[in-house]
Amino acid sequence: MRNELVTAFRAAAVTLVLTGIAYPLLVTGIAQVAFPAQANGSLINDTTEPSVTMGSALIGQSFSDPAYVNPRPSAAGAGYDAAASSGSNLGPTSKALRDRVAADVARLVAANPNAPGEVPAELVTASGSGLDPHLSPASVAWQIPRIAAARGVAADRVRAVAAEFEQGRALGVLGEPRVNVLLLNLALDRRFGQPHLGASITPK
C-alpha cells in the first residue's frame, strides 16, 4: 500500500511534468514560431494606425450604431465582454427570454422600418458564447435598408460589400453560410467612411 502510494506520487509528478508543463510549452513554442497571428488571438489592427488593435477577427463586438451591421444580442458580461463569455441559458419556457425577445423585436422593428419580413430569429437570440462574430447573410440583408439609410448610400452598394464578406460552407458542406460582422463593418467604413459615432450610439 505504501509502495503504491509512493508510485502514485511519482506517477503524478511524471505525468504532470510531461502533460501539464512540457506539452503546453512545446506547443506554445511551435505556435508562436509557426502561427504567431493565430496564436495570439487573430488580432486586427487599425489600418490607419497600426499600433491600435481594434479587436479579434474571431470575436464579436457590440455595434449599436444604425450605420453598422448590428450583431446578435449577447449574454457575455454587459454584452460582447470577451473576458466573460456566456450564453443566456434561458430555457424554452422562460418568461425572461420571452420578455427580452419581445423588447428586442420592438426595438428592431422601430429601428428598421423598411426591413423585409419578420425579424430574423438570429437578431433576437443570444449566441452560446455571447461572442458570436457572425450573422447569417439573411440577417445582414434584413438590416441593409437601415444601414443604407444611416450612411446615405444606396442599399445595393451596401449589399455588394456584404456579398464580398459572405463566407460559404467550408469545403462546400461544413457549417453554415455566414458573414463576419466586425470585418464587414470595417469594410463598410473603408468604403463609405466612418459614421459619426457617439451621437447615434444608444446608451446602454
Binding site: R72, G87, N89, L90, S127, D132, H134, L135, E176
Partner: peptide, 8 residues
Amino acid sequence: LEGKEVRF
C-alpha cells in the same frame, strides 16, 4: 437559435 452560434 437561442444559445447557438451562427457558424455551426
